[in-house]
Amino acid sequence: MASLFGRKVSLLDAIAGSIAVAALAGVVWSPKLNNQLAKATGSVKAVQVQVDARNLPLADPTAFLQSARDDQSLSLIVRNQPAGRVQVLAIDEVRRRLVELQPNGQVIQDDDPTSPLLHHVRFNLEAQATIGPSGIVFGGTKLKIGSPVELEGTLYRVNGTVSGVVLP
């Protein structure tokens, strides 16, 4: 075949060399390496995100909240694309309150009794995201207030909406 440095190169050697070059290119352009380089340069920062999951039909809301708190991290799916894992900081049940003003001037507040089986839950999460001029990018997709997301834990998968983003 052809000669390289005065030595003949067989077809098998050429194939092995091209596989080695392809493997090296895969390592250089791998997403994990890009993420490590982004962390080293400081472009990736911890961002706190609040996600509201509304109208969850829960048979046992206390067991759901405890299961969600036991999960240290959740899978986040943004616009039907897996975006990675996020850390759970806190999970709170958000209750609607009704306020009534009495004729004597007294204000009475109570939970909304219209739908006791549907629950609203707020997830406070922390994610490592890239912060750019157009907002934060997490898992290759922009994450803004109003973005639909899915949260997947050990025993549940819920749809929610990003309701808050706290930049460092």
Rank of each mutant, 00 (worst) to 15 (best):
7 R>I: 01
8 K>L: 10
9 V>W: 03
10 S>N: 14
15 I>C: 09
16 A>Y: 09
17 G>W: 04
17 G>F: 08
21 V>P: 01
26 G>Q: 11
26 G>R: 10
31 P>D: 15
32 K>T: 13
33 L>W: 12
34 N>S: 14
34 N>Y: 12
36 Q>I: 08
39 K>Y: 09
40 A>Y: 05
41 T>Q: 00
41 T>M: 07
42 G>C: 04
44 V>D: 04
47 V>L: 01
50 Q>N: 12
56 L>W: 05
60 D>S: 13
60 D>G: 02
60 D>A: 10
63 A>I: 02
63 A>T: 06
63 A>L: 06
69 R>A: 11
69 R>N: 12
71 D>H: 10
73 S>E: 06
74 L>C: 00
83 A>E: 09
83 A>C: 09
83 A>K: 07
85 R>E: 13
89 L>C: 06
89 L>Q: 14
90 A>H: 13
91 I>T: 03
94 V>E: 12
98 L>Q: 11
99 V>F: 09
106 Q>M: 04
108 I>G: 04
110 D>R: 15
113 P>T: 01
114 T>W: 08
122 R>K: 09
123 F>H: 06
124 N>H: 14
124 N>V: 01
125 L>I: 07
128 Q>H: 02
128 Q>N: 06
130 T>I: 08
135 G>Y: 05
136 I>K: 04
136 I>Y: 04
140 G>P: 06
140 G>H: 03
143 L>D: 06
143 L>W: 01
144 K>P: 05
144 K>Y: 13
145 I>H: 02
149 V>T: 05
151 L>Y: 05
159 N>V: 10
159 N>Q: 11
160 G>T: 03
160 G>L: 02
165 V>F: 01
166 V>T: 15
166 V>E: 13
